[in-house]
Simulated assay, not measured.
Amino acid sequence: MGTLSKRKGVRDGGERDVEAVLDELYTTPPADFVARREELAAAAKAAGHADDARRIHASRRPTLAAWAANLLLRSQPKESQQFLELGQALREAYRTLDATGITELSEQRRRIVAALSRQTAQLAREAGHRLSDPVQQDVESTLRAVLTDPDAADRWAGGRLEGALTPPSDFPGTAPPTGAPQKPRRETAPEPSARTQAKARTRAKDDLAERRHQREERLDHARGAAEEAAHRLRAAGTEQADAEAAWQGARDRHAQAQQQMSAAEQQLQQAREELQRADREQQEAEERSHAAADAHARAQHEAREAEQEVKRLTAHSR
């Protein structure tokens, strides 16, 4: 109970298993859910899996908060498994803790839920969806339900929530407060002897001491689990912040490279236009050069003919 399910991703022959298909579908943003569902159902039907196609087609689009919770489960499987285990430990601890211990664990639980809720919002932003305050509250409600309700934990561990979960108003399994009034019982047996009463008191003290010892052990275990979970969440948050900063830097460098590429492309276009103009000017110059050479050749020919005519006329005049 309360553990992440492990499913096959392919069928025999390489076809995708319907469970893996549904897992993918429920991490699809709600705006794209219906189109993706119909696409996957059609693919299953075309592959000859009519039952799978019906299952896929029967899937209901999740709310934005439910989608974000599914995304957290699939994107952070290790942290999600630890969160589920923490919820199981906390529920066990709550069964035997006194009011002081419950108050302390409740505060730790609120801190862990708030940290994981922020991580969920960050994952949603990276997927292109910013969560509004009401949606963020639904995410926190779901996470609180996972910690306090084993049925809610199992539903979230399935990774296919359709709506936000609501935690129970009373924490399940909480023992009644010590010293609560008991219903009077009718005495039917004779009054025990002083020795018997003394043994009973000693046994009751031993039992009380043992219960207190067990409560302290559970409280220490729950505190340790909560602190470890909080530490892991802080570490994950730091790692996520570093990754986001690196992503932002890479995006800035990408934008700068795009600008440089655009400038280079513009310069290349200008150079091409310059080359085309130079080619045209060179061609025109070659044509003018050829025309000038032809004119020069004709002039030379005409000059020789004129010279020969002069010589001929001079010879006749003698």
Rank of each mutant, 00 (worst) to 15 (best):
T3Q: 14
K6L: 06
R7Q: 00
K8G: 09
V10N: 06
G14M: 05
E15S: 10
E19V: 12
L22P: 08
R37M: 15
R37S: 05
A43V: 05
G48P: 06
D51R: 11
H57M: 10
S59A: 15
T63H: 05
L64P: 00
A66H: 08
L72R: 12
R74W: 11
Q76H: 06
F83L: 07
L84D: 07
L86D: 01
Q88E: 15
A89H: 05
L90P: 10
R91H: 05
A93V: 03
A93Q: 04
D98R: 02
A99F: 09
T100W: 02
I102A: 13
T103S: 12
E107H: 13
R110W: 10
A115V: 03
Q122F: 06
L123M: 03
A124Y: 01
E126F: 04
A127W: 00
G128I: 01
R130H: 07
D133T: 09
R144I: 05
V146M: 14
D149P: 05
D151K: 12
A153F: 14
G158V: 01
G159E: 04
R160L: 01
T166V: 06
S169V: 12
F171L: 11
G173T: 07
T174R: 10
P181D: 11
R185W: 07
E187V: 13
E187S: 10
P190V: 13
P190W: 12
S193Y: 06
A194Q: 11
R201W: 11
T202Q: 13
T202H: 08
R203I: 04
A209V: 09
E210K: 10
R212K: 06
H213M: 13
H213N: 08
Q214L: 11
R215C: 06
E216I: 10
R218V: 05
A226E: 02
H231W: 09
R234M: 13
A235E: 15
A236Y: 02
A241S: 10
D242C: 01
A243G: 08
A246R: 15
G249R: 13
G249P: 00
R251Y: 03
D252M: 09
Q256H: 07
Q256C: 00
Q259I: 05
S262T: 12
E265N: 06
R272W: 12
R272K: 14
E273T: 11
R280C: 05
E281R: 11
E284N: 09
E284A: 15
A291N: 12
R298I: 13
E302A: 15
E302G: 04
A303I: 12
R304V: 14
T314A: 15
T314F: 14
H316Y: 13
